[in-house]
Protein backbone atom coordinates (compact mmCIF):
# COMPACT_ATOMS: atom_id res chain seq x y z
CA UNK A 1 0.00 0.00 0.00
CA UNK A 2 1.29 3.36 -0.97
CA UNK A 3 2.02 5.64 1.91
CA UNK A 4 -0.19 8.74 1.71
CA UNK A 5 1.44 12.08 2.29
CA UNK A 6 0.04 13.93 5.30
CA UNK A 7 -0.47 17.14 3.32
CA UNK A 8 -2.77 15.38 0.88
CA UNK A 9 -4.91 14.09 3.73
CA UNK A 10 -5.06 17.57 5.27
CA UNK A 11 -6.22 19.02 1.96
CA UNK A 12 -8.96 16.38 1.79
CA UNK A 13 -9.92 17.28 5.40
CA UNK A 14 -10.05 20.97 4.53
CA UNK A 15 -12.23 20.26 1.48
CA UNK A 16 -14.55 18.15 3.63
CA UNK A 17 -14.72 20.89 6.27
CA UNK A 18 -15.55 23.56 3.71
CA UNK A 19 -18.24 21.34 2.21
CA UNK A 20 -19.77 20.94 5.64
CA UNK A 21 -19.54 24.65 6.38
CA UNK A 22 -21.17 25.61 3.08
CA UNK A 23 -23.85 23.05 3.87
CA UNK A 24 -24.56 24.62 7.30
CA UNK A 25 -24.71 28.10 5.78
CA UNK A 26 -26.86 27.35 2.78
CA UNK A 27 -29.20 24.53 3.77
CA UNK A 28 -32.64 25.46 5.03
CA UNK A 29 -33.58 22.12 6.51
CA UNK A 30 -32.35 21.48 10.01
CA UNK A 31 -31.67 17.81 9.35
CA UNK A 32 -29.31 18.67 6.50
CA UNK A 33 -27.61 21.25 8.63
CA UNK A 34 -27.01 18.53 11.24
CA UNK A 35 -25.57 16.25 8.54
CA UNK A 36 -23.26 19.05 7.43
CA UNK A 37 -22.09 19.49 11.02
CA UNK A 38 -21.29 15.76 11.15
CA UNK A 39 -19.22 16.17 7.99
CA UNK A 40 -17.30 19.04 9.60
CA UNK A 41 -16.64 16.92 12.70
CA UNK A 42 -15.34 14.09 10.56
CA UNK A 43 -13.11 16.53 8.67
CA UNK A 44 -11.65 17.59 12.00
CA UNK A 45 -11.20 13.92 12.98
CA UNK A 46 -9.45 13.17 9.70
CA UNK A 47 -7.04 16.05 10.32
CA UNK A 48 -6.22 14.64 13.79
CA UNK A 49 -5.55 11.18 12.40
CA UNK A 50 -3.31 12.58 9.65
CA UNK A 51 -1.36 14.60 12.16
CA UNK A 52 -1.02 11.58 14.45
CA UNK A 53 0.36 9.43 11.64
CA UNK A 54 2.77 12.13 10.58
CA UNK A 55 4.37 12.41 14.03
CA UNK A 56 3.94 8.70 14.83
CA UNK A 57 1.89 9.51 17.91
CA UNK A 58 -1.28 7.75 19.16
CA UNK A 59 -2.81 11.05 20.29
CA UNK A 60 -4.39 11.75 16.91
CA UNK A 61 -6.39 8.54 16.95
CA UNK A 62 -7.33 9.04 20.62
CA UNK A 63 -8.72 12.45 19.73
CA UNK A 64 -10.71 10.90 16.88
CA UNK A 65 -12.31 8.47 19.34
CA UNK A 66 -13.25 11.42 21.53
CA UNK A 67 -14.75 13.23 18.54
CA UNK A 68 -16.76 10.14 17.63
CA UNK A 69 -18.17 9.91 21.15
CA UNK A 70 -18.92 13.62 21.22
CA UNK A 71 -20.59 13.46 17.80
CA UNK A 72 -22.78 10.59 18.91
CA UNK A 73 -23.90 12.49 22.00
CA UNK A 74 -24.48 15.66 20.02
CA UNK A 75 -26.58 13.89 17.41
CA UNK A 76 -28.79 12.30 20.03
CA UNK A 77 -29.50 15.67 21.68
CA UNK A 78 -29.88 17.44 18.34
CA UNK A 79 -32.29 14.85 16.97
CA UNK A 80 -34.39 15.10 20.10
CA UNK A 81 -34.52 18.90 19.59
CA UNK A 82 -35.43 18.46 15.93
CA UNK A 83 -38.27 16.15 16.88
CA UNK A 84 -39.58 18.73 19.35
CA UNK A 85 -39.26 21.55 16.81
CA UNK A 86 -41.20 19.56 14.28
CA UNK A 87 -43.77 18.66 16.88
CA UNK A 88 -44.39 22.29 17.76
CA UNK A 89 -43.98 24.16 14.49
CA UNK A 90 -44.72 21.48 11.87
CA UNK A 91 -41.73 22.61 9.86
CA UNK A 92 -37.99 22.11 9.77
CA UNK A 93 -37.22 25.27 7.79
CA UNK A 94 -34.79 27.39 9.88
CA UNK A 95 -35.81 30.55 8.03
CA UNK A 96 -39.30 30.11 9.44
CA UNK A 97 -38.04 29.68 13.00
CA UNK A 98 -37.27 33.27 14.01
CA UNK A 99 -39.03 33.49 17.35
CA UNK A 100 -35.95 34.93 19.11
CA UNK A 101 -35.36 37.88 16.81
CA UNK A 102 -35.28 41.34 18.44
CA UNK A 103 -38.29 43.36 17.45
Amino acid sequence: MMPVHANTVLIVAAVLFLLGLVGVLTRKNILFMLLSIEIMLNAAGLAFVAAGSKWQQPDGQVMFLFILAMAAAEVSVALALVLQIYHQYKTLDVDALKELRDK
Partner: peptide
Amino acid sequence: SFSQNGSLRWYVA
Protein backbone atom coordinates in the same frame (compact mmCIF):
# COMPACT_ATOMS: atom_id res chain seq x y z
CA SER B 1 -30.97 45.01 17.83
CA PHE B 2 -30.55 44.70 14.04
CA SER B 3 -27.97 41.92 14.48
CA GLN B 4 -30.34 39.96 16.68
CA ASN B 5 -32.57 38.92 13.79
CA GLY B 6 -33.38 35.34 14.84
CA SER B 7 -31.89 33.76 11.71
CA LEU B 8 -29.72 30.77 12.65
CA ARG B 9 -27.62 31.11 9.51
CA TRP B 10 -26.74 34.69 10.35
CA TYR B 11 -25.48 33.53 13.71
CA VAL B 12 -23.39 30.78 12.17
CA ALA B 13 -21.90 33.29 9.77
